[in-house]
Simulated assay, not measured.
Amino acid sequence: MSDTRTLAGVHPVDLGDGVHAFFTAGTGGVSPAPWSPSDGGGLNLGLNVSDDAARVAVNRSLVAERLGAPVAFATQVHGDVVLELGPAERVAWAAHRPPASAGEGDALVTAERGLGLGVLVADCVPVLLADPEARVVAVAHAGRKGVLTGVVHRALDALVARGADPARVRAAVGPAVCGRCYEVPGAMRDEVAAVVPETRATTSEGTPGLDLPAGVVAQLAVRGVAATRVERCTLEDASLFSHRRASGVGTTTGRQAGIIALI
């Protein structure tokens, strides 16, 4: 179910009745270069990339307006900790000056109506999860380390603990760097593929690579969850933020997000 509000570059996904979910792009905000992928204002949602905090606050408010609810973000550390948010967090994030972070973790879960959850990325995989019948939603940040540690499994465990049925859970795997572009040392590819074989890839240059979105889809499938995959590569798509692209030219970049809420 999608909202009628507008925001440049938003990619809505249908995760069932009573759920709003979408992925943001890099445009439509107030941040200048290098936190903007174009000449227009950038919608950088990350606070740890040297952008001005006041601009990030404006960008986050634009996303909250698009969602129709305040949006909570965590301090992501490439781990597998799941943070549960509820009524107190909805009040805190709806305040005039919301918290900078809901805490340290790489997944968020809530059964609280009217509280958005956000997952920040700039090449890693944003994952949105919902059981519309049990009325519970979650997000997960799945980079290479997160895929290895099973952060998506931990997020699903948190949903199930709150009444979700994997057979009903709907998932969306958002824009991330693809296997054609994510070059890694051969030993690193072998390490990840030994745990999640579906991640094994070869880049367009014929070098070892990792397809993390494919790995996340496979991890969801093991649990009986069918996922919609947004086939957009952050490195190839200039409208999206990419840490690897920015690093290649010696600069920083912003963070886009996956967003979900019960309505």
Rank of each mutant, 00 (worst) to 15 (best):
48 N>K: 08
20 H>K: 09
31 S>C: 00
129 L>F: 12
256 Q>T: 14
7 L>G: 04
253 T>S: 10
61 S>R: 12
181 C>P: 00
101 S>V: 10
55 R>G: 09
239 S>K: 14
114 G>S: 12
78 H>C: 10
63 V>H: 02
253 T>R: 00
63 V>W: 00
261 A>K: 02
6 T>Q: 07
254 G>Q: 08
191 E>Q: 14
30 V>D: 00
127 V>K: 01
118 G>F: 01
97 R>H: 13
52 D>W: 08
263 I>P: 02
195 V>W: 10
27 T>S: 05
64 A>L: 05
168 R>M: 13
28 G>V: 03
95 A>M: 11
40 G>S: 10
96 H>D: 10
146 G>S: 11
142 A>I: 04
250 G>Y: 12
54 A>M: 08
23 F>E: 01
23 F>S: 04
97 R>D: 14
204 S>V: 06
138 A>S: 05
21 A>K: 03
38 S>N: 12
224 G>V: 15
117 L>D: 00
55 R>W: 06
232 R>I: 13
135 R>T: 13
29 G>S: 03
216 V>N: 07
100 A>F: 12
187 A>V: 12
155 A>H: 05
87 P>R: 14
133 E>L: 05
225 V>L: 12
25 A>V: 14
15 L>M: 11
5 R>D: 07
80 D>N: 15
125 V>S: 01
115 L>R: 03
94 A>G: 15
185 P>R: 13
150 G>I: 13
138 A>W: 00
192 V>K: 00
6 T>G: 08
